[in-house]
Amino acid sequence: MDDYLIGVLSNIGVISFIALSAYLLLLTGEISFGQQAFFAIGAYAAGIATALWGWPLALALVWGAAIGGAAAVLVGIPTLRLHGLYFAIATLAFAEMVRILFELFRYQITIDGELVGPDGADGFRNIRYIFDNNIDAFQFLLLIYALLAVVLLGFVLLERSRLGVIFRMIGEDETLAGLQGVSIAHHKVLAAGISGALAGIGGGLYAHLTTYVEPRIFDVMLGVHSLAYGLIGGLGTALGPLLGVLIDIGVLESIRALSGYRMIIFGGLVALLLIVRPRGLLDENVVHKIGRFWRRISPWARRPGLNTGNRNNLTGGRP
């Protein structure tokens, strides 16, 4: 594989984490414009852990995820009773606060006669763990996708679990879910925490992939993009957001001939796509049909499990 391809694939993998984090919240019915905050927090936390404290990468990533998750829980609690646009703007406000705070954040120590650490708006350079430990780009790519595979497996298990059903139930109708005896507050904070941790892992990987982060990367654009990926790719499965990232970064950014017109084409295509498929390419109906098809042709498929599809029939209901 050439370096360019490795670079693009690594990017796709890393951005997939934040797209999945926004997707998880969409499942519970919440639109977040602020997942970039936890991505940023994960990036700084993991970067500081390896570059300043000399921690091993694995531990640093876990630490980044933990801090990202904890921050998301802290935001999740006061914003519990907000919905729709109110929730979206509250998360946006929080994310912008985080971004500005990182512009003010200085924490540098001298290592080998060199100042290392976050330097306010100038960013955080020299997160050199993968060079210092002779991890080449391809190995790091494998690490990214191994972690992504674990996360996807987690989503598969989630979709089949009681918890997944509860998340979708809350997304469908919170009041109704409450009447079924589901503890709404508990589960929404849990979803916020998991999504924060996902973004945190992504951030940690991102920091080590690029070796350099600066606050302005983590702006509203990143947040809205990660939300859009899920909706473009489809809300029916966790593969949806991945497909969204793949289409945007993979196809469009890679075709150099399109540069200059890329967003004109992509923007128009997305707008047209959403008219035809308002819940994305892989929406619940498609996923349901693929699932049925798979069960028919596969001799070892399980009996029909939990049905996550059919939502469109509900939303298309009578006025």
Binding site: A228, G267, G268, A271, I275, P278
Partner: peptide, 28 residues
């Protein structure tokens, strides 16, 4: 493009669609 063709209940699709057009207008 982003609002008139969207069915009831597709508010989030309108929003994301308007974001896509934002990118388009910026590049234009």
């Amino acid at each position: 493009l982003c609002f008139a063709p969207m069915k009831a209940g597709a508010g989030i699709a309108s929003m994301v669609s308007s974001f896509a057009i934002w990118m388009q207008l910026e590049q234009a």
